[in-house]
Simulated scan of single mutants.
Amino acid sequence: MKKSHGPAFRAAQLDLDKCPACRGRAVISGVFHELACVQCSASGWVTAETGEALPLEVLVTQLSIRLQAAEQQIDQLKRPDPVFGPDAQYNDNNRRGPGATNFTGD
């Protein structure tokens, strides 16, 4: 581990695992109603190495990092794939035809 002074410049992503007591649901079944899970502080997440609950400040940061990564992945999947090959000249306007229209060479 590298020695450093002061806080890190970037928050590192910790390995999280679902709480074994509530199985990631954040609640456990009581006799008559559901109760907040005490083992994971009702979050459903624990550290993967130790299985302990994270402090709330760290948990919020870790969940935010995971949410931003998931949103970025969703945005990448929503973007259409660029068209390559012979189809590309028919779909995109190359402005080489008369009146700056599409010229395909056919």
Results as ranks from 00 to 15, higher is better:
residue 54 L to N: 01
residue 39 Q to W: 11
residue 57 E to C: 09
residue 7 P to F: 06
residue 59 L to E: 06
residue 8 A to S: 15
residue 32 F to T: 04
residue 25 R to Y: 14
residue 103 F to A: 14
residue 84 F to C: 13
residue 93 N to P: 00
residue 20 P to T: 10
residue 24 G to I: 05
residue 39 Q to P: 08
residue 7 P to G: 14
residue 16 L to V: 05
residue 61 T to W: 08
residue 63 L to G: 06
residue 87 D to A: 14
residue 64 S to I: 12
residue 12 A to F: 01
residue 99 G to L: 02
residue 7 P to Y: 07
residue 84 F to M: 11
residue 13 Q to F: 01
residue 76 Q to L: 15
residue 7 P to Q: 13
residue 96 R to D: 14
residue 15 D to Y: 14
residue 7 P to C: 07
residue 51 G to E: 06
residue 26 A to S: 15
residue 8 A to F: 06
residue 3 K to W: 11
residue 4 S to N: 10
residue 17 D to A: 10
residue 6 G to D: 03
residue 53 A to F: 12
residue 66 R to C: 00
residue 30 G to S: 06
residue 27 V to E: 10
residue 73 Q to L: 03
residue 41 S to N: 13
residue 51 G to K: 03
residue 15 D to M: 10
residue 97 G to Y: 04
residue 11 A to Q: 09
residue 70 A to T: 04
residue 97 G to V: 03
residue 85 G to F: 03
residue 70 A to D: 08
residue 104 T to H: 04
residue 11 A to L: 15
residue 77 L to K: 08
residue 38 V to F: 13
residue 19 C to Q: 01
residue 75 D to N: 07
residue 67 L to W: 02
residue 92 D to N: 15
residue 10 R to K: 15
residue 46 V to E: 03
residue 80 P to C: 05
residue 42 A to M: 07
residue 71 E to Y: 00
residue 25 R to P: 08
residue 67 L to F: 05
residue 19 C to I: 05
residue 53 A to Q: 06
residue 2 K to R: 12
residue 59 L to D: 04
residue 47 T to D: 12
residue 33 H to I: 14
residue 65 I to F: 01
residue 81 D to L: 10
residue 23 R to C: 14
residue 3 K to D: 07
residue 59 L to K: 01
residue 85 G to V: 00
residue 67 L to G: 07
residue 67 L to C: 11
residue 105 G to M: 01
residue 25 R to T: 15
residue 51 G to F: 03
residue 51 G to Y: 01
residue 15 D to G: 10
residue 97 G to R: 10
residue 19 C to R: 05
residue 45 W to E: 04
residue 35 L to V: 13
residue 70 A to Y: 03
residue 22 C to Y: 02
residue 86 P to A: 14
residue 90 Y to V: 02
residue 98 P to K: 12
residue 37 C to R: 02
residue 39 Q to Y: 14
residue 106 D to G: 12
residue 10 R to E: 15
residue 88 A to S: 12
residue 47 T to W: 15
residue 82 P to G: 06
residue 102 N to Q: 12
residue 96 R to Y: 04
residue 14 L to M: 14
residue 75 D to I: 11
residue 82 P to M: 10
residue 95 R to G: 05
residue 82 P to Q: 06
residue 103 F to H: 11
residue 61 T to Y: 08
residue 85 G to K: 00
residue 69 A to P: 00
residue 106 D to K: 09
residue 12 A to I: 08
residue 25 R to K: 13
residue 22 C to V: 06
residue 60 V to D: 07
residue 29 S to Q: 15
residue 97 G to F: 00
residue 22 C to R: 04
residue 8 A to T: 07
residue 63 L to K: 10
residue 48 A to H: 06
residue 26 A to W: 07
residue 87 D to S: 11
residue 84 F to Y: 09
residue 86 P to K: 11
residue 42 A to Q: 10
residue 71 E to Q: 11
residue 31 V to N: 06
residue 45 W to S: 01
residue 96 R to W: 02
residue 36 A to Q: 13
residue 14 L to N: 02
residue 16 L to N: 00
residue 82 P to A: 07
residue 57 E to G: 08
residue 21 A to D: 12
residue 48 A to E: 00
residue 40 C to A: 02
residue 53 A to T: 08
residue 9 F to Y: 13
residue 86 P to R: 09
residue 68 Q to T: 07
residue 84 F to P: 12
residue 85 G to A: 03
